[in-house]
Structures are given as structure tokens and as C-alpha cells.
Design a binder for these strands. Structure first.
Lengths: 200, 200, 200, 200
DNA sequence: CTCTAATCGAGACGGTACGTCGCGTCTTACG
DNA sequence: CGTAAGACGCGACGTACCGTCTCGATTAGAG
């Protein structure tokens, strides 16, 4: 995640207990603050205060607040993507959607903060970035839409659906299964071969 | 848009020739700068310098750079929406899509700046805001997807498609008609009745 | 003193009432603080607070606290030197000494701060610098001691005598005249021709 | 000098080989750095790096860099003063001056660093402090100048002469003897009885 | 010669001050 | 006499050192 390196071991992100603690405190603080205000109203001083970490110490871990957020985002998104990819045997998109929704449901508070709080914009971009990487690894693309556009649309649609879902009251009756269904029909199916216009 | 008031007349956005000139200069400068860097790297001093208007004068027109951008965005989006709505008799979505694409094509430089430059995020939000207003005026909603979600998806998908289109070289072979087709099949059709899952 | 320049007039140190006021406030504050602590324990924030001037504004006038002090020092020393030079017809050193002592006596509080407060070191250096300039303008040097050394000794001795004088209670009985006498016999006479060792 | 105490013995400045080594390394490093830049541009981290001693270790020996310098200064000055005092039988000031100059000449590099490098200010003050102590032990004072002032002038003059001497190229022809002469005539003689003004 | 405790290096940490940048207000001197 | 030019107070930024505090890893010197 970060480029921090311990000289002796060459491993990333030193394992010094103090470092781990500070790092975690910073991430928690960031999430707490994101529930309250958009990213650009959060100052590094806010984060330091909220996390009970020295202002200077922030920079010992992240060069900017954007990097902290990206660290969090990349971690969480990677978790999510790995899980959905693993859950589905990579061809069965419906299964993948369901796993994804179930996972989000389990961590509703976290994802609510990330997707409907002040970090929404960053999350969308990071999602897209990671998805493009994943997409690039898959050789085939059978859709009638240009691949690049297809990826963009699938991802942004999925993210929008989930963000909308998270903004609904939890008892509004939208189960993971139903949302997974929506994702399939709205985000995935439309770009599949056969869904497009009858080509001239 | 802004709250500026001319003392004598009490009217908004004075029509004094100097005011009009300054205002236009500010908007042009903002667009020029947006081609070069993202919104948050543009300072009010940049805009003042670029537009050859006194720094203080900026504040006589807009309380912040966000307001200037919103002013531009709202104007342009309103133009766009009005046109597509008028072009289509509101039921024929295909026609509307085509008008919209044609209009964007005519003002390609402007929209390229707005949607692929530093203002992209703001534009998406403003698009959504205005579309929600418009959608609220229409009583009926036949889709199998919750109306709010349907609006979000349609708008974000349209915006993404157009943004992608504008980022392609102009000679890549994507005509307005073809893009309008994509919009119809990817953004509009999927939420229409009959496209959803076979309901239990 | 400073390099500030008004674009239009080309004059130094703008005459804007606010500038003059800020500048004066900063100088006063510096002197006040120097009565209390040495230069390197005075922070720019202290000066700003003491002078009721914004922290940032300090830098609009001086690039560092050393420059502020040098500004003050150079001004005051120049005053002092000009006066002593004028008072004496440049050959009569006794008269010059007397004028100098009288002037210091008149501004005892100021010089007390400058020479016995936290700025003493800087003042000694600045005195020497200016004296060297003045000495360089005089062609002749009849002393038996190398000219450079003679200047150093005369200046440091004068400064030490005055600093010592200012540290005495005012009623200790050392009149300007008596101090001027000391200066003559201790700082000036020893380097004059005829005072040295009988040369082999 | 320092307050470091070995628990068992209660003695100051432990004799542990490692301590002695670190201490010496720190002093050398300080002198090396003083040749290059003024005291206030030398950071404790510089000293630690230069001396190949851990940063933390510095504080195990000295509470601040000023204390390290004072330690060095006091040692060296004490050496110098003891020698001059012993060399002269305390009445023959000429002999003392000569011994002093000879000693400085022998350790020219060291004294050059101390008096013309970044530590000059501190050295002057320390010289004065120690001289005052020595002067206080001598009961008599026959000069026509107040004793306190006499001490100040003698010491500062001697220091200035030596600093000037050290700044000259070594082959400029100023022998120890000649400098001792200057010291006698410029720093000592002027305050002796009979040199002052003809008293009324 | 061994073992115990002093010493050391490394470096994370909470701080304080720095000097810079941009904001938005308010004053002023000029046209 | 209005307006642009710009001085100003403010507050966040990111940096540099400070001095404190753990940690292990040596290593000196007492037994």
C-alpha cells in the first residue's frame, strides 16, 4: 500500500507496534471524519486531532490526505474485488454480483461512509482504476460496445447502484439478492453480446 | 445565479456593460484554465490574471470559484437539457438522444473541457441535480427499477458515454448517431419496463 | 533600508499609511522584546503578537527577524555615526567622542536595549561593519598598528565602554564628559602614533 | 562539566571506554563543523552524523549543543589562562602576554576555529566570564578606570587582537613576540595608573 | 572467562516554529 | 468619487529540528 520500507528487512510498512497503531488511528480518524464532511473540508490537522496522533506524524505515514484515503480505498476495493472474483468462477457474473452485495451488506457502515460520504468521488476513480487493471488481464471482450467504455459503464453503474442502496434505509426491503439482480440486469447484461442494437 | 445586486435597480446580475464584460471574461478564463488543470489547482488569482480583471472584482461577481463554475455548468447543462427535451416529444427517447449528441458535437470543445477537464466531478453532480428536477416534473414512471435509482443510472451513464466519446479522437468513427444509439441501449432501455428480471 | 519597492514610483518602502504603521509596530515590538530576552529566544510569532500585526505580515516587511534587527541597528548606528562625525570636524576626536556620548545619553533607553539587551552581538557586528565603511573612506592612517586592527579595536572598545556605561545606574556619577574622556584615552589614543612601543 | 553520573561510583563523566570515545568524537565533530558554519546552523543531528555517534547518544553526554561548546570552550580557555598566569609571576604582564601568544601559536588551528569560526561569540563571552572569576581573586586594582570596565576592555581587546592575528596569513610577519607587544600596549598598559587623563 | 548491566544505534513520536500560499476583507491612493 | 491595487489577518500547508521514549544489540569490566 505505502512505499515505507524498513531498511533491514526490506519489507513494507514497518511492523513496529507504534507504527501500526498510528497508521490504524489515522485510517479510523479519516473514516470518522468522512462521515461528517467532504474530503476537501477535512484538514490534515483534523485528522491528526481526531486520531490523537501528532500533526507531524501524519506525514511520517502519508504524504498527503489523498494518499491516506487512497490507501484505505485501495485496500477495501481490492478486498471487494478479490472476493467477488473468487466467489464467481469468473464467468458466472450473477454469482459474483451476489457475493459482492453480500460483502457490502456485511460491512455496510464502512461502505456507506466510503461511497456516500465525502470520499465518493475518490472511490469512484479508484474503483475504475482497479477495474481497468483487472479488465486488462482478461483477454476476451465479446461485447458490442468498445471495451474501454464497457468497463467504465459497468463499474460506474455498479458503484451508483450500491451507493444508492446504501443511502436507503436498511429496512427498505432491498435485499442483497435483489440488488445483485439489479446489478446484473443494469450493469452487466446491457453490454453483453446480443443486447445491443440490431447491427446494420 | 449569483446574489449580486445593483444598488439602484435592485435587479440581479446588472446589465452594466462593464459587468457583462467582466462576467464573460471570468467565464472564459475559467474554461481556459480548466483545459489545463483540475479545479482545485486553479486559484481565484489565476482566474483574475487570465481574465485581465482585478482580483477584487472577482468577488463582485461570484462569492467563490465554485460558484463561477456552477454558474457556467448550470447554464450549459440547462441549454443541453432544454434542447434534448424539446427535440424529443418527451416520449421518443431516441430522438432526444440524437439531438443531445448533435448539440454536444457542435460544441465539442466546450463540452470536452467541461466533461473531461478538471470540472468533470462538478459537472456530473450538476447534471444529476438538474435531471432530478426535470424528472420530478414528470409524473409517471413505468420502470421496474426505483425511480430515483433509474434517474441516477440514466444520467451517469449518459454522462460517462459522452465523456468517453469526447475523449476519443474526433475521427475515430463514432458519429453522433452511433453514440445516440449507445445511449439509448445502455442508458435508457435497461430501465424500461420489460427489460428487468422475470419477476417472481 | 529594505528593498521594498512601489512599482509605480520606484521609491523604497511604500508610503501607504498601513505599511508605515505596521513597520513601526514591528520595530517597536522588537525593541520591547529585546529588553526581555536574547534575539534567538524571540520568535517571529512573538514579534507579530507583540506588535498586533498578522504573522504573515511580518514577512511582507522583512524576510527574517535578523533583517528587522539589522534595519533598526543600521538606522540607529548611522544616526549616531553621522552625528559624531559632524560634531567633530573629523580631526578632533575628543569632540566627536563627546557628541557621541551626549547623543547616547539622550537616548539612553534605546541604546541600553540595543547594547545590553539581546541584540548586543548583532549591534557589535553592525557597528564594526559600518565603521569599516567609514574608515575606508579616510585615506590616511598614521597609527603604528595595522589599520584593520586599529579599527576593530577602537570600535569594540568604544562599544564596550558605552555598553558598560549603560549598565551602570544612571546616578553612578559617570557623566557624558567623563565617558568621552575614557573613550579618548582607552579607545583612540592607544593607536595613535607615538603611543606604541619604542620601535627597534 | 556535565551532570552525567555513573550509578555505582557516583563519579562524574564515567570513565567507561565507550563514553570517553563518544565524548571525544562529539567534541571533534563540533570543532570540525565550526570550521564550516556558524553555531546556529549546526544541528545536533549534524554533530551526531559527523561524529558517527547515534543521535540519541548526544543527549547522554550533553543537554544541548551550547553545553557541548561551552564544555570545549571552558576547557581550552582554562588551559590558556592557567598557562599565561603561571608563565607570568602575575605582576609581569609582558611575560604573560608572550606565553599566551606562544601557546595560541602552537595550537593555531584550534584557536583559529574557536575565535574566527562560528563560535566566536560564545568564546568571547566565556573568556570574559572566566577572566572575571580570575580577576575577582586578585585584591588590588590600581588603574584609573573602574575595575569591572578595565577587565572587560582588557579581555575583549586581547581576544580581538588574537582573533585578528589568527585571521592573518601565517606568513604575514606577525610573530608571537610582536603580537604580545601589541597586547601589552593596547590592552594592558592603557588602564594602568599613569596612563589616564591628567586628573583635575 | 563469564555474565551482568551500562552504553549504544536506531528511529517513532509529540511538539514548536518556520516560511509559503491562497483566501476574502478592507483601506487607500489614483485616475 | 468610484474603483483597482494591494496591504492585511487568517489558517492550512509541508519541513526541519527538537528532546523524549522505547526497543534490541553490543560490549566493557566486575566477579
Amino acid at each position: 500500500m505505502t512505499e515505507q520500507v524498513t531498511k533491514k528487512t526490506g519489507k513494507r510498512s514497518g511492523t513496529d507496534a507504534r507504527q501500526v497503531k498510528s497508521r490504524h488511528a489515522l485510517r479510523s480518524a479519516m473514516l470518522t471524519l468522512l462521515e461528517r464532511k467532504p474530503l476537501d473540508e477535512i484538514t490534515i490537522r483534523d485528522i491528526a486531532a481526531e486520531s490523537d496522533v501528532g500533526y507531524t506524524t501524519f506525514f511520517r505515514h502519508y504524504p498527503s490526505k489523498a494518499d491516506l484515503l487512497n490507501d484505505i480505498a485501495a485496500d477495501e476495493i481490492r478486498n471487494l474485488v478479490d472476493l467477488s472474483m473468487a466467489g464467481a468462477n469468473s464467468t458466472d457474473m450473477r454469482a459474483g454480483s451476489l457475493v459482492l452485495c453480500a460483502y457490502v451488506q456485511q460491512h455496510r457502515a464502512l461502505w456507506s461512509t466510503l461511497l456516500t460520504g465525502g470520499a465518493a468521488g475518490v472511490m469512484r476513480e479508484e474503483f475504475l482504476r482497479i477495474s481497468r487493471e483487472v479488465a486488462a488481464e482478461h483477454g476476451e471482450w465479446g461485447g458490442w460496445v468498445p471495451r474501454e467504455l464497457g468497463t467504465i459503464l459497468a463499474v460506474t453503474t455498479i458503484v451508483e447502484i450500491i451507493a444508492w442502496w446504501l443511502s436507503q434505509p436498511e429496512d427498505a426491503g432491498f435485499s442483497s439478492a435483489r440488488v445483485a439482480d439489479m446489478i446484473y440486469h443494469l450493469a452487466i447484461a446491457p453490454t453483453l453480446p446480443g443486447s445491443g442494437p440490431a447491427r446494420a
